[in-house]
Amino acid sequence: MKLLFVCCTILAAAFAATGDECYKDSVRVCKSVLKDNKKDKKDFSLPSCSAKYGAILEMLPELQQYVNSHITRNFEYMLMATHYGNYEKSREGFEKIFMDLSDSKWDTAIDLIKYITKRGGEMKFDNIKADTVNDENASYELYELNSLAKALDMEKELAERAHLIHGQATRRRENLHDPEVSSYIENKFVHHHAETIRKLSGYTSDLTSLLSGPDSSLALYIFDDYLKKQSIV
């Protein structure tokens, strides 16, 4: 019974926090200047005047991990592009689409950081999802079809993570409701992911049928030439 009471008090306090706490803070600091003007150190902080509202506080760890995953993917695509840029592989089209993907992950990481701070949050670069880099020894020097397959897997993983964040912000987790977060995820991620995933899936279908033909080397050359003019993101 006591526990219930404590819980209720905490909840009540939490709700009260959405009232006029920032105003009270501001009154407090203004008064403190008049009263203790002899003191050297004054506490001018306004803890209740942050930009946080809605469910952003609970969403933060997930969003921070999402930023860090984008930074990692940016490096991984960079390596895949580099591999296709060397003179032995010499596949400009593959190099281009992986570099485009790398650029896009980087830009998205910056965009996400700006978003986190827009909602009053803080970016934590050491909050890394445990299985993002499952293997430090993973190889990024892949054959053409395998590299497209890997990219498709990576994009799907990012898309599913976006769904997860969207779901949590839409009351999938108890009491969490933040339509601003879910709308941001929809507009900036969900639709783009669908485009990229569809394109990559289409490429793997094409390449699979081309590679089973009589001259797979020529097919690869022509497909690579085709990729040069495609935009993946």
Partner: peptide, 20 residues
């Protein structure tokens, strides 16, 4: 790449996570 390097050991070229 222009000088004919990076034909091998590309995967080890950069670390996948960097914490500032």
């Amino acid at each position: 790449l222009m000088r004919g390097e990076l034909t091998s050991n590309v995967s080890k070229l950069i670390k996948k996570t960097i914490v500032p």
